[in-house]
Design a protein around this nucleic acid. Structure first.
Lengths: 170, 170
DNA sequence: GGCAAAATCACCCTTTGGTATGAACGGATG
DNA sequence: CATCCGTTCATACCAAAGGGTGATTTTGCC
């Protein structure tokens, strides 16, 4: 499990050494058996070895620019009542993600329940959510129970999955 | 998902044998064709090209895709009102998703643990996962415990969240 | 064949999660 | 004003999750 990356390099070294030995052996055999033009044979072997190495080097060089960026989102929540009737919001947005207000209203999920849901999706326990929101553990339990009823799920993991499918959380 | 760390030694042997055969073939061809002197240059070029390709192929075959993962912590602010037309919304790639193999190997997550993680992300309970995978509940508990250690989390909800951030699951 | 890792399972125990029920408070609304 | 709803909190009970330990079997590698 830990020697994975080290083993690769070692394998390549082993391969290189064995390949060199093989080529030397072949050259020697050719030199012994096919006495004619042995200089050309060695030359061919050297070319082969050289360009195999070149190929390996090229491949390693090509693979280099594959740089993958993993963005860890550290979410900061600003809880505010935000009386936002917003009469003109019938836009069906698929490309850009915003919290699906229609789903929220359709399911009857309140703002406080949404807070709990978001913290739940981040993996916080009920106790941690309670401390974050300055309420008691029982309150969080009530909210989460209501949340599960409205989302029609039985567990918090299902709730997170369902909420993601419904576009309630990113 | 079970081809993790296939027989390296055996592969090297196979490569060596095929390489030897290839060299013999080349020698034979050389024996037949080398009569024409001015064709030697083309022959050398062909050999160079061939072995360059061989080297690239070998490197790609032996080496695992070497990617450099850069983890960036990005703070995003979420408010309740939906008046947020920011075009830089992350993680909308649900359509095509490829599992981050590098992260898997770096964290040492086994194939079975990955199965558990995926079902866990779907909101299944340990009992349901056990039934789905035809193993006992205790086995799932063991797998999930090891999973939490490797993901450096304490709860399954955190594990799902972390795995999603690391690109292990969509 | 020996070794190490993975996979499997069991037991005990503690913590967390979830359900059910009830109740108090405050804002909005007709 | 009475009522509804969201929010808050409580108690009790049960189910699920998680930690720790130990053990066995299987599998792949050397």
């Amino acid at each position: 499990m830990s020697l994975r990356s080290a083993g690769n390099i070692r394998n390549i070294v082993i391969y290189g050494i064995s390949l060199a030995a093989l080529l030397l052996l072949l050259s020697w055999l050719q030199w012994r058996l096919l006495i004619i033009d042995h200089a050309t044979d060695i030359y061919i072997g050297a070319i082969a070895l050289l360009f195999t190495g070149l190929g390996i080097w090229l491949a390693l060089k090509i693979m280099r620019p594959k740089k993958e960026t993993v963005i860890i989102e550290k979410e900061i929540y600003i809880t505010q009542p935000a009386a936002d009737p917003s009469p003109t919001t019938p836009s069906t947005d698929i490309t850009n993600f915003t919290i699906n207000e229609q789903q929220l209203q359709k399911l009857g999920i309140s703002a406080r329940e949404m807070d709990v849901l978001q913290l739940m999706a981040k993996g916080l326990s009920n106790q941690e959510i309670a401390e974050r929101l300055y309420v008691s553990l029982n309150t969080i339990k009530t909210h989460s129970s209501n949340l599960f009823l409205k989302l029609d799920v039985k567990r918090r993991t299902q709730a997170v999955d369902q909420a993601r499918k419904l576009g309630l959380i990113p």
